[in-house]
Structure formats: C-alpha cells, structure tokens
Design a protein around this nucleic acid. Structure first.
Lengths: 191, 191
DNA sequence: GCGATACTACACAGATCTGTGAAGTCCGCC
DNA sequence: GGCGGACTTCACAGATCTGTGTAGTATCGC
C-alpha cells in the first residue's frame, strides 16, 4: 500500500519478495528476512505490522510490476491480433527469470484460508488477465470472446505451472503458439 | 512404497494426505497428523522414518490413484478422438472434490530443493500425462502429436490452477472443450 | 509358552516460529 | 536547539517444529 517506503522497509520488501518466491511463504521466517535486509525485527514489525501483511505487500507489488510489463508490451503493439498475445510475449521473457512458477498460485497453495487478504490479490490477478483477454479479443473482432479468453488464460497458467513444477522450458513458447491459433479461430471463424 | 501398510500407518497416510492437500506441507506438523490418526508420533516415525518420506509417500499414492482413474476412463473408451480427452473427463469430476488445485504443483511450490525425492514424483506425473497425450494423439492419427500433446497438458494444468487459485469453476469444462478443438485440429488438418 | 510385530505413554532435546517490551542512537528539519 | 521519524540492541514470551529415548502392553502365529 504505502507508495513510498522507508529505506529499511524497501530493503525488507525486496528481500522478502526474493525469499518468498524462491523458498515459499512458510519456509521463510521474519528473522531471516530481517537479517538479510540488514534490519531488526523491530523495524520490520514497525513498518509492516505482521508477516501476513508483508506477504500481502509482496504479492501486491509483484502483481503491479507484472501488470506494468503487460501494459508496456501492449503499448508497443497496434495490430489487434498481436495485442491479444501481449501477455504471452511477456510470459516468454518472464519465465526464465521466474522459474518457480506462478507466485500467486504458489502463495495460494500455502494460504488455505479463503479470507486471507493475500487471496484477494491472487483472484484479482487472474481475473484481470481473463478480462484483458476478453477485451482484446473483442477489439480484434471476436464475436464471442468469453470462451476463447478463458482458453487463453488456461494456456497462460498451464505454461507457468508446467515450467515451474516440471521444468518444461518449452511450455511458454508452446503456449504462445497455441494462443495464436486460438485467437485466430475466435476472430476469424464462425462461433 | 510399502504395498501393505499396518493399520496405524494406513490411518497416518490417509490423514496426512487430507491435511497436506487442504493446508499445505509446511503448515501441517507431525504432531497434528499423529493426533488426528489416533497414533503416537513414535509410531509415525517407526513407519515412515521422516516427515519428508511421509510427504513423498503421500504424493506417490496420490499419483497412483489419479493414474488409475485415468486408465479406468481410457478402458471405457474405444473411439481414438475420445480417448485423447480421457484425462479431461477425469478432470471434470476430479476438481469439485479437489478444489485446491494440483497437489503436485502445490507441493512443488513448497519444496524448492530440486533434489527432494518428492520432486521426482511431481515431474514424473506431468511427464506421464504429456506422454499419454502424445501416444493417444498418435493413435488417433495425428501426424505430429508432440506440439498438440504439450498444448493439451497446458490446458489441463491451467484448468487446475485457475480453479484452485482463483476459484474459476468453469475452467475444467472449458479446458475439455478447448482440448476437443486442439485434438480435432491435430488429427484432421495439415500441420 | 515364545517371539515377532504393532502400538502405547510420556518426557525431552534443540531449534525455530511470530510477535513484543524497554531503552537508546542517529539525523534531518523547523 | 529541540522534535520526531527511522532505526538499533537485547531480552523475552509462548508456541510449535522435527525427531528421539525409555519403558511397557496387546495381539498374533507357531
């Protein structure tokens, strides 16, 4: 939430983001995060209040940065059919730097309580992408963009899962190609 | 591993499977598993040796049961094009009873160490499914089944992720429909 | 009766977990 | 020169974690 973090808080959030993604939420304690940030636990709790809040801040910032990447790619593209595939363009460059799968799915696996504030971030991220696909498919002329948008979402999530859990590095590229076909059909053929 | 478990070990594994899937690996301690199984920790360690081994046994048994479901469905089907979709038939009935996504992906998220024995189970599960798709596509007459097999895997994994992390209950059905289209194209059209 | 197997009760080790309390330092800003 | 925000050190609470040690019981087949 806080737009401008104190220097210590900034380091805490950067360290937490790296460790949470690499090792998982429960496997990383606040002692380690504080130590690696060069900050005391006292400061960590003064800035974030709780570990849960720190987890939520981590996911919110990650979501924000990823959306910025997708929007930046969209700004580079004019052709409607290519714009639909923008998230897959991002995916292909994203996965090599993020080989442990989708941070939101991984977080969800560790947060069974549906009422946890971080779960709302996860749901928001997926729904934002699904809606983006629908919007761009409609702009590209798809008469019934809903089903195709969900299919594209599934390909996107599937690629993250296959690459992250099973090390299938060809998944993002394959997802992009399959998405191109789905897109072409949704736009160009009778429903 | 052990084909026949002692009564206590059987209860331990059943309880562990439920708790690990519902709450996550790290969130569930051996004390809780032992207590819920009506068994002492001593017995748990005598039977399984370590928590890691118990986690591995949980994933192995889950993998086995899921493959049995897929094979049973395959046995019901003759038509090649329908056989390719057998895993999606299972998926549609599987997800409502398993609303927290893919147990293997979730486990992978909590086991960053690539050398953990449970990780091999995860990779084995995904590769088995990918290979099954390839085999069945080839049997259905697909000239180049590799790419389509990977696409089907992505749809399958994507549906589990979308349903589990974002509560998109329409994902399995959508994945099955999209898979039908992918299958038809792979079999019936020029590459 | 004998031995093997399965299991119990219970204490304990040593580490780690989240979170707090009290007191004090540094530094820029008004 | 004083105020307040950011941060430090250190101790501590209370729970929970994985894993083990010792000692004893119940139920089998033989």
């Amino acid at each position: 939430m806080p737009r401008s973090l104190t220097p210590g808080a900034r380091r805490v959030l950067d360290v937490a983001a790296r460790l949470f993604y690499e090792r998982g939420l429960h496997a990383v304690g606040v002692d380690l995060i504080a130590a690696e940030s060069g900050v005391t636990k006292r400061t960590l709790y003064d800035r974030f209040g709780s570990k849960n809040a720190l987890v939520t801040a981590y996911l919110e910032e990650r979501d924000e940065r990823w959306r910025d990447r997708v929007r930046a790619r969209l700004d580079e593209l004019d052709e409607p059919a290519r714009r639909v595939l923008a998230p897959f363009d991002v995916l292909v460059t994203w996965v090599p730097d993020n080989p442990r799968g989708c941070a939101f799915v991984n977080a969800s696996a560790e947060l069974p309580d549906a009422g946890h504030p971080a779960r709302a971030v996860v749901v928001g991220e997926k729904e934002w992408l699904r809606e983006l696909f629908r919007t761009e498919l409609a702009a590209a002329g798809a008469p019934d963009p809903g089903p195709a948008a969900l299919t594209l979402l599934l390909l996107h999530e599937g690629a993250l899962a296959a690459a992250g859990a099973a090390g299938m590095d060809d998944a993002p590229g394959a997802a992009r190609r399959a998405a191109g076909t789905v897109c072409a059909q949704a736009v160009g053929s009778p429903g």
